[in-house]
């Protein structure tokens, strides 16, 4: 359900872009998705494959879904560490003065058009 909402936003933006650039069709779309963005890749792909059939420019669009790694920063150790493995606890000092640096983003990287 959540993934579908995001698919709708992505498709809307790409369709507008295709129209503005007067392309024939969009053949490939690359997304960069942080691993703690809360989006499930399989659901997203399903929702995308279903939704693209209803578009004007994206009916044959191939989707590249690239997961990017999440990193957190420990304010005490001044070091970053992988978030998924250790969560909010710094693996070095065991402290909790940490925050997420990257990994929640959901970026449209590029599109290939003809």
């Amino acid at each position: 359900m959540h993934e579908l909402g995001i698919v709708v936003h992505v498709i809307k933006q790409i369709e507008e872009l295709a129209k503005e650039n007067k392309v024939n069709k969009v053949v490939e779309l690359t997304l960069e998705v942080g691993e703690v963005s809360g989006v499930v890749k399989e659901y997203f792909i399903d929702a995308f494959e279903w939704s693209k059939k209803k578009t004007e420019y994206m009916k044959e669009c191939k989707l590249n879904f690239v997961m990017t790694k999440a990193f957190s920063y420990c304010e005490d150790c001044k070091e970053t560490y992988p978030t998924v493995e250790f969560g909010k606890t710094c693996p070095k000092c065991g402290g909790a003065h940490t925050y997420l640096v990257t990994g929640r983003d959901f970026m449209i990287k590029d599109v290939k058009v003809v």
Partner: peptide, 13 residues
């Protein structure tokens, strides 16, 4: 085939 670079957040819109 040409590539359009976007690099923008899905939530930007």
């Amino acid at each position: 085939v040409r590539t359009i670079l976007l690099h923008r957040s899905v939530y930007a819109d």
